[in-house]
Nucleic acid binder design. Structure first.
Lengths: 342, 342
DNA sequence: CTGAAAGCGCTAACAG
DNA sequence: CTGTTAGCGCTTTCAG
């Protein structure tokens, strides 16, 4: 528990210059390995810097260079594996490009816009996810802020946008469910809460309709296990329950799983369910779901952003929709041949 | 796809001052709601700022104020629910305190130290987790860098340190396993990789020893499902396998679960297992584990850090070990009364 | 209440 | 190769 004493004030480039007997310009050059400095001078400077344990001020440097060397990313929430994975991909790619990462979770805070604007002032570029801020703010940001990349949301203006596929896979899921013979299908989740969910709902409805099955309005529900569980409990008390419940994501589906199991019913016999995301728990409960490349979403966003920052102009608008893979397990019904799974 | 035109250069305080016909000092005051400005002047400034869509430069301001208004946090990795939860708690608390957060995952990168130092230059305070950087670096940082809080690692010097309990709960687990009648216990995970794991291993060993059971050396294994699965597959091929496998965390345990199940064996009959962290999947596979307050770890770290930044001196050294709760489910053996679980 | 001016710490011309 | 000198954009005395 030895005390760690602090010096009164951090050394500046002036202190080093004085101690080394050179000008601040030389110190600046030496510190950044410019080759316009003699080996001898460089060594003098190094020694002085060492002596004073000098670390260049990031603020001074950034102000002079006119750049932050940092990227931002705006999440709606941070709960659950989805965001963690996206962040992982983003951080990794950004770090490789030598940039620091600032993170913001709006969490439905009322001052989300202000926070995002604040973030915009701290970075050279940022990615904005889902429904974190209204479109107007995105437009405003695009006009006056640093380069932007949109992630998991509808494009706005001519901004680069990276998403993963939803509708087509949802149709595929619909077809699969119809093949199982289900006619009473319900969707659990809030399409208004997230663009991805809206697409899943729409795709499911379209797919079912193509088979002559009508999808009733979505049963609204938040994005977590508890919400799914509560919603399912209510549903199980109803007279006429659906045969299969398509959930907005895995966490909701897992909540349903809990409710069904605790009610002494079986999946898929009494109620079939499907999720979305293929989180770790999904494979363990045999949940039919869809796997999207979450890490890659983050990584691509980071790289695109980098391109925009390096060459703010000239790069054509980029839009990409990464493919999503349906993962069929046991929760949606019994299959002759055990498909997918690991 | 309307083009969003950018102005050549962002407006500065000088532009606003000129347009409003006042000095930059007045603009500065007006922008920050100082009461040394007439309502009339304030309005003139507001209008000019609006007109130019002026946003004060964070860099200029920070340099002048001598502070970043940002916090950092250093993670070893970002994979898995544990880090996501800690981050969640941290971000939330930091945001409430009006601070931006910078995140860094060292991921075993070779330049981890350099990255951490770089981060230190961008924040007014930061938390350092687990084995991200060597102790010397922590000491160096404590001496010359911004305020520090240590999270999930051994204390260093007189730095505030927040952790969760490991050893005592591991002893408790040991006692429970002994009660089940197990004598052949093995530990799967690398105690050298993380202070928490070292404590769990030590606690388990101590607890077993107290009951006259000897714990063999840990079976080293990385922290993820795949590593756990691979290790378990090897173990299952061995002549004489343990009765119970205590895993460093849930992900490793889930990997073991997979291996055991795929080998056609049953848990706990053929091999009992336990994990640590109580991740979402754990409850679904009935994994006996230990629950630690991950979000709270992050939140407390953020708050302590804030105290240090506000009052760099005078606050006594704080050390806290948050309690961990053993969650007994079915994977460690059969219980008369179904305990815990949700 | 408002303005002038001195920094904050560093980079980058521009001269030598 | 090295030093001088402007800034970068804002806050903050210090005068008025």
């Amino acid at each position: 528990m030895k005390a760690l004493s602090k010096p009164k004030r951090a050394a500046t480039i002036y202190d080093v210059a004085r101690l080394a007997g050179v000008s601040i310009a030389t110190v600046s050059r030496a510190m950044r390995g410019s080759d316009l400095v003699t080996a001898e001078t460089r060594e003098k400077v190094r020694a002085a810097a060492e002596e004073l344990s000098f670390t260049p001020s990031r603020l001074g440097r950034s102000l002079a260079e006119g750049r932050h060397a940092a990227n931002g990313i705006v999440f709606p929430h941070l709960v659950g594996p989805y965001y963690a994975e996206v962040l992982l991909g983003y951080e990794e790619a950004a770090a490789e490009l030598g940039r620091s990462v600032l993170i913001l979770a709006t969490q439905g805070r009322t001052d989300a816009t202000a926070q995002v604007l604040e973030l915009a002032g701290r970075v050279d570029g940022m990615v904005v996810m889902g429904r974190t801020v209204p479109d107007e703010v995105v437009v405003e940001l695009a006009r006056h802020g640093p380069p932007l990349v949109l992630l998991a949301r509808e494009p706005v203006g001519d901004l680069d946008t990276i998403r993963s596929e939803n509708a087509a896979t949802a149709r595929e899921l619909a077809a699969h469910l119809v093949e199982h013979g289900y006619r009473r299908v319900a969707f659990l989740g809030d399409p208004d809460a997230h663009p991805d969910v809206a697409d899943r709902f729409a795709g499911l409805a379209a797919g079912l309709e193509a088979a002559g099955v009508r999808l009733p309005p979505a049963i609204r529900c938040a994005f977590d296990v508890d919400a799914g569980q509560a919603a399912a409990e209510a549903l199980l008390r109803a007279r006429r329950r659906p045969e299969v419940l398509v959930c907005a994501n895995d966490e909701v589906a897992l909540g349903v799983h809990l409710a069904v199991t605790e009610a002494g019913l079986r999946i898929p016999a009494d109620l079939a369910i499907t999720g979305w995301d293929d989180v770790m728990a999904a494979r363990f409960v045999g949940l039919t779901t869809a796997r999207q490349p979450m890490r890659e979403l983050g990584a691509i966003a980071a790289r695109w952003l980098h391109d925009r920052m390096v060459k703010p102009t000239g790069v054509p608008v980029r839009r990409q929709v990464l493919p999503t893979q349906l993962v069929v397990r046991g929760s949606c019904g019994t299959h002759e041949v055990k498909a997918g799974g690991s």
